[in-house]
């Protein structure tokens, strides 16, 4: 019994187990990997993707894709930076950024629930349209040299801790609590698990889905704010290709594409694993021509390890 419980704990936290194995292995085999500076680097690299993954995970848990996250990030970065460069106050600019993200989320939610489009199609439309809007606003120009206060969330530190890392931890904490302790959180899981049953049991599915997309939009926009601060610039090309990384991180973390299964701490594990893999490849300065292949093999290895463990537990049972 004890053994089974142990195995269950391992399975439930498989991504963290794999991450730990990866960290321990590299502590021995990768020079300068296991240093405070480098572990801090990994957390910094994880923060922007991590924030986007919270939004993506909320959508996936409710049984929907959100492809528009990376475009929303770029739009928010461009909108906020443009406003702040044109003399608008920091808070107004940030508010406008977050609102732009919320609006994209609202449009996504409405397209899905009110117009009746498939989430993949609806968010594909906004994925294209929103990046297009970002491009149109600045006509491909890069905005740089932003005010330090605007960059605080991306590049600032509180005592010795980069704000980015504190934000990552804080946001995961808040949204994890939201999912497991509130009625809204339970509804997200129920809608994702079985929409029909959720509706029959009196849950307002429209409201849950629209809220999830609005939250995802807000979070992506927030990630845009952090990225603009981190890079002290904004470009309509920010976040290109990030949606695939966000989905991979969530899936590696065990969030089901069918909805209703998974948790945020696991998704965070997925984010940290992906960032650690990239970090190790950079530290080893792997050939630019092979880096993608090696990254793919490492991800495959992690996923296979995970599926092996699942089989093992099934066998034990």
């Amino acid at each position: 019994m004890k053994r089974r419980e142990f195995l269950k704990t391992v399975l439930d936290n498989s991504v963290w187990v794999i991450l730990s194995i990866f960290l321990i292995f590299n502590a021995f085999y990768t020079p300068r990997f296991f240093t405070v500076l480098n572990l801090r680097n990994i957390l910094i690299h994880s923060s922007i993707l991590g924030i986007v993954v919270i939004g993506e995970s909320l959508c996936l848990l409710s049984g929907h894709f959100d492809l528009s996250v990376e475009s929303t990030l770029a739009l928010a970065a461009v909108v906020g930076s443009l406003l702040v460069k044109n003399g608008m106050g920091i808070f107004t600019s940030i508010l406008a950024m977050l609102l732009s993200g919320g609006m994209v989320g609202l449009v996504n939610g409405m397209l899905i629930r009110k117009v009746g489009l498939n989430a993949f199609v609806a968010t594909l439309i906004t994925y294209i349209g929103v990046r297009g809007t970002a491009l149109g606003i600045v006509e491909g120009k890069t905005i740089w040299n932003l005010p330090p206060s605007f960059c605080f969330l991306g590049a600032g530190t509180i005592w010795l801790f980069p704000v980015q890392i504190l934000l990552l931890i804080g946001l995961y904490g808040v949204f994890h609590l939201l999912l497991i302790t509130t009625r809204f959180g339970r509804h997200v899981y129920l809608v994702g698990d079985n929409q029909l049953a959720a509706r029959i049991s009196g849950i307002n599915v429209d409201r849950v889905v629209v809220s999830v997309f609005v939250l995802s939009g807000f979070l992506s926009a927030f990630a845009g704010l952090v990225m603009a601060g981190r890079l002290n610039s904004a470009s309509p090309l920010f976040g290109t290709g990030m949606v695939f990384e966000a989905m991979s991180a969530a899936i590696i973390g065990g969030i089901s594409l069918r909805g209703g299964v998974g948790s945020l701490p696991m998704a965070l594990g997925g984010v940290l694993l992906l960032s650690s893999i990239s970090n190790v490849l950079n530290l080893h300065a792997v050939s630019p021509y092979w880096i993608q292949t090696i990254r793919a093999i490492m991800i495959l290895f992690a996923v296979v390890l995970d599926s092996l463990k699942r089989r093992l537990v099934r066998y034990e049972e």
């Binding site: 300068r32 090309l237 290709g241 970090n279 300065a285």
Partner: peptide, 22 residues
Amino acid sequence: ISLPGYWNTEEGFKITVDTLTA
């Protein structure tokens, strides 16, 4: 030390940070 940045500013940031650490 050659690393690919895929024409992506954030990737350039990560490479700089990681390489300066190593």
